[in-house]
């Protein structure tokens, strides 16, 4: 299936995420360095897509643009019916808070909050804190006994599970994961990803994940590769 046909299908089926003609370049010593050159992408609700490519191919840039963490040069990003590229800073923050969940490679937990508070943080910000759901997440992620600990007292795998739980706690429509297992060993990474996909399905969230690993990518519904600034399935 081509990207364009996927986008068409998704549009017909009511795509959750629709990216069209997205371009982005960075300023380099020799002038602008294009990273994305008119990327098109569509993702239906409840589905998952692995975004692959070599280092520097623009995978993380695409993810950051979708999350509203960075600005595109041109093109459009729609999540549900919201045009992300036209939102101001407050609008993008609200989108991240209420519609998205983001998991980074470096976990990015708040070191001064306990595991329990970290898990609840985004849900509380979004006004969607559900104690039962948090407990269910903690239970499923194997964190129930660690709720009063601080991140520095956890292993890397445990920290990433907290990050996954935090992203899923507000029941986001779309989960964005930037190499979520990059800091973990293969077995732990596998386990964390399985949980991420399982819980995303339970929460009804679509998943867009950046990864280097073909093995991990194979666990997702679809795979796309970024090369030369363009996306190919």
């Amino acid at each position: 299936m081509s990207v364009m046909s996927a986008a068409r299908d998704a549009a017909v089926n009511g795509a959750l995420l629709r990216v069209t003609g997205l371009s982005k370049s960075y300023r380099g010593p020799q002038g602008p360095l294009p990273v994305l050159r008119g990327v098109d992408l569509a993702l239906a609700a409840g589905t998952s897509l692995a975004l692959m490519g070599e280092s520097g191919s623009g995978k993380s840039t695409l993810l950051h643009l979708v999350a509203g963490l960075d600005h595109a040069d041109s093109g459009a990003i729609r999540i549900d019916d919201v045009e992300v590229t036209k939102l101001d800073d407050d609008g993008r923050a609200a989108l991240r808070r209420k519609t998205l969940g983001v998991v980074f490679q470096q976990f990015n937990l708040v070191p001064s909050l306990t595991v329990g508070d970290n898990l609840a943080l985004q849900a509380r910000l979004a006004g969607r804190y559900d104690c039962d759901w948090r407990d269910a997440l903690a239970d499923r992620l194997g964190l129930s006994a660690l709720l009063d600990r601080y991140p520095e007292q956890l292993s890397g795998g445990q920290q990433q599970r907290v990050a996954v739980g935090r992203a899923l706690a507000p029941r986001p429509r779309l989960l964005l994961a930037d190499e979520p297992t990059g800091n973990l060993d293969e077995a732990t990474g596998d386990a964390v990803l399985d949980l991420l996909l399982e819980l995303s399905a339970t929460a009804g969230a679509a998943v867009l994940m950046v990864t280097h690993s073909a093995l991990l990518a194979a666990k997702l519904d679809r795979r796309a590769t970024l090369a030369g600034g363009r996306l190919a399935l």
């Binding site: 999350a67 963490l69 923050a93 991240r96 808070r97 990015n108 708040v110 985004q122 910000l125």
Partner: peptide, 15 residues
Amino acid sequence: LPIIRTLRAIGASLR
């Protein structure tokens, strides 16, 4: 800064 970044990333507005 990392905390602020995390807060921004998970949707806390700048305001």
